[in-house]
Amino acid sequence: MVRLLSFLLFLATWWLAALLTGDVKLPAPPAVLAVILREAASGALFINLGVTLARVALSFTLAMALGAAIGYLMGRVKLADRIGDPWLILLLNLPALVVIVLAYIWAGLTEVAAIAAIAVNKLPTAVVTLREGARALDRSLDEMASVFAIPRGRAFRHVILPQLGPYIAAAARSGLSLVWKIVLVAEYLGRPNGVGFEIGVAFQLFDIPLLLAYSLTFAAVVLVIETVLVQPFELRASRWRPRAA
C-alpha cells in the first residue's frame, strides 16, 4: 500500500514538473506511455529489452562465476591473494568507460567485446566479496568434514557453499545493479541494438519521450527482476544466519 502511494506520488511529481517546465523538456506521463505502447506494438521495445537482458545475463553469469572462483581461491590460498591483490586494486579503480573503450578498440565493435567489458567491470566486486566470504569460513567445520572423511565435492556443496551463500547473494545484488548501468553505456558506445543504443538514438534526435520510454521500461524490468529473483534468493541464502555479509 505504501509502495503504491509512493509510486503515485512519483507520478504526480513528474506530471506537475512536466506542467511547469513544458512538454518539450519533460513530457507528461501520458505522452511517454503513448511512446511505450507504440514501441511495444511495433515489437522494437521487446527486441531491445530482450537483447539488453541477454547481455546482462551473459556478462553477469560470466563475472559471477569467474569472480566467485577467483575470490574463493584468494580467500583460501595466501599466495593467490598476494598475487591477485594488486590486479584487484587496479581493476577496482579502473573506470568502466576506459574498460569498454579499450575492449572496443582491441576486439572491435563486437558482442564479445561488449560482454567481456561489462564482465570485467563487475568481476572485481565479486572477487572482493567472495574473498571475504572465503576468509570468514569456519575452519572448525572444515576439520569436522576432514575427520568424518566427507568427500571433497560433498564437503564443498554441503559445508562450504552454504557459508558462502550470503556472500554470493550480496555479490549478486550489488553486481547486478552495477551491470544494469554499465550495459547501457556499452550499448550506447558500440552496439547496434539494445536499450542503451535506443537511448543514444533518442539523445541524437532530442527525442525525450523515446528516451524516457526506454529508460522507464528498463527500470521497471530491473525492479521486477530484483523483487522476484534477487531478493528471494538473498533471503533464502541468508535465512540460517541472522546477519548477512
Binding site: 572448525s140 552454504p162 540460517w240 544466519r241
Partner: peptide
C-alpha cells in the same frame, strides 16, 4: 580404521 569424533563444541551445520 573409520574415525569418529566428538569435538568440544558440537560442530553441527546450522543449515541442516
Amino acid at each position: 580404521a573409520r574415525l569418529g569424533m566428538v569435538f568440544q563444541e558440537p560442530r553441527l551445520l546450522p543449515w541442516r
